[in-house]
Design a protein around this nucleic acid. Structure first.
Length: 472
DNA sequence: TCTGGGGTCCTAGGACCC
DNA sequence: TCTGGGGTCCTAGGACCC
């Protein structure tokens, strides 16, 4: 019906122009695929990659389970102990022992090796950036691509090919976009050695759902004009942003499918869910005009760690100190300053408490992170916790170069980097306000130190100095 | 389903200012 | 006298995602 034209080109809800072609690339059980890449014996086997897991142990949680392992009921985020009940460890399958599990019914358990997965991910990303002008990396194993300028929604002129494409979507018209997405998936497989599922649609939201619709190794194409039809029969949880809580709340209103959401009155949903409700209806109707943009800089950095339920103050302080040091180190490595320091204390059974304090200005000061974190922790003295965390936020990358330059380069004159790099401008700025990175110094090491030690710095060029005492 | 770790975004209330 | 409304910042919590 749509023939070789651009179906739906005039049905656009936004007047922003012709339909875009957006791909969502989702790696299939990525960690397990990486393990198979370096250990081919694992292919075809149930593989479970555990986080916080040590070989032979039963602690930790499932980070990724291969599809073979999922067939045994092993799911992401499941405790390893539970996974082991459903799928015994292969190493425990002793052929001599009649009580040991059948090797054919046993899985391979491996600890997470993030450094290796990042190497593989870098190869995947190289392919993605080669295939698209704009790539939004969502996580280590997921990305959106805007390939509008590389392909089109036109029907592919594939001559006498009689077979309609299963991936082509409801119209079963093979499009150029389908061919391009297939090409992306095949390149990833060939060049990085790991499988991916790809969804193609005129917007991000639909592409995301599409990539999820036929995993693993899937390709699902949703051409313009058929987005709503494609989404309608799916359960509400298929929508990105609908988790268990929202799913339940929707079900209570008799809304079970994405089609039900599309048919709902946006204002009625907005009453219960706020702006999210309105947005949900738009997504369900296939309306999503968000542009694909690169991800940008992080908003916060954190580290947390579970521990056996404990009220031991020393143990808690040591944990927080270690987490604080780690967060501060990572912040420094990434060259960012932070203005807010916070902690998280999870009390049994699962009460999450967060506390945070903002400083008058951005700093890079590991000792201060520790001191503030410990101070915030003091509120929970005597309380039992099962997990502790430290976070820095209100990050400031713009100033961090100054701090780095002021802190580590003895000579602020023109260096080699300044000649061929893009940092000359920063140095100019640095020289003009004179004390880049000094903020860190005058904040002082001990927040409880109330002396007049700050006199040595003129506060004129920074804001917030007077409020130092507010948080000390 | 007794729950690992790293994030994002949103909301709501209070403080404070004009 | 006792009463506005708007804006911003901060904190805490919650839902969600991978």
């Amino acid at each position: 019906m749509d023939g070789g034209t651009l179906p739906g080109a005039d049905a656009g809800d936004d007047a922003s122009g012709p339909d875009r072609v957006v791909c969502h690339v989702d790696m299939d059980c990525f960690y397990a695929s990486c393990e198979r890449l370096r250990e081919p014996d694992l292919r075809g086997e149930p593989v479970v990659v555990g986080m916080g897991y040590e070989p032979g142990e039963t602690i930790g949680a499932v980070a990724t389970a291969s599809y073979e392992a999922r067939a045994f009921g092993v799911e992401s985020a499941m405790p390893i102990s539970e996974a082991l009940e459903r799928l015994p460890r292969r190493a425990d399958a002793d052929p001599e022992d009649p009580d040991a599990p059948d090797p054919a019914e046993a899985g391979r358990y491996l600890p997470v090796d993030l450094a290796f997965y990042e190497e593989v991910a870098a190869e995947v990303k190289a392919v993605l950036h080669d295939c698209a002008d704009v790539v939004r990396e969502v996580s280590i194993d997921e990305a959106y691509l805007d390939v509008t300028d590389r392909t089109a929604w036109d029907a592919a002129a594939d001559g006498g090919d009689p077979a309609p494409s299963a991936a082509a979507g409801p119209s079963e018209v093979r499009t150029l976009a389908e061919g391009y997405a297939r090409h992306v998936g095949e390149r990833i497989e060939r060049e990085a050695g790991v499988p991916a599922s790809v969804g193609v649609a005129p917007n991000m939201s639909a592409a995301k759902v599409a990539s999820d619709a036929d995993k693993p190794d899937g390709l699902v194409v949703v051409p313009p004009g058929s987005v709503e039809t494609f989404l309608a029969p799916l359960p509400t949880a298929a929508l990105h942003g609908v988790g268990p809580v929202t799913e339940r709340a929707l079900a209570e209103r008799g809304i079970e499918t994405v089609g039900d959401v599309a048919a709902a009155d946006p204002e009625a949903l907005a009453e219960e869910f706020g702006d999210r409700g309105r947005e949900l209806v738009r997504r369900a109707r296939g309306e999503d005009d968000r542009e694909v943009t690169p991800r940008g800089l992080p908003k916060s950095l954190s580290r947390e760690s579970s521990l056996p339920r404990t009220a031991d103050g020393k143990r808690k302080r040591e944990t927080v100190s270690a987490l604080a040091a780690d967060v501060a180190r990572r912040a420094r490595e990434r060259g960012c300053l932070y203005r807010t320091i916070g902690i998280k204390a999870v009390e049994p059974p699962f009460d999450v408490n967060t506390r945070a304090r903002s400083l008058p200005g951005p700093v890079d000061d590991p000792e201060l992170v520790e001191a503030v974190a410990l101070e915030l922790l003091a509120e929970f003295d005597g309380d039992a916790v099962r997990k502790l965390g430290v976070r820095v936020s209100n990050l400031d990358f713009a100033e961090s170069d100054q701090a780095t330059l002021g802190g580590f380069e003895e000579d602020e004159g023109v260096s080699d980097e300044d000649v061929d790099g893009g940092r000359a401008g920063r140095n100019v700025r640095d020289a003009s306000d004179g004390d880049g990175g000094k903020l860190t110094d005058w904040i002082g090491d001990d927040p409880r130190d109330e002396g007049g030690a700050d006199d040595r710095v003129e506060p004129s060029d920074r804001d917030g100095q007077a409020s130092l005492d507010d948080w000390a």
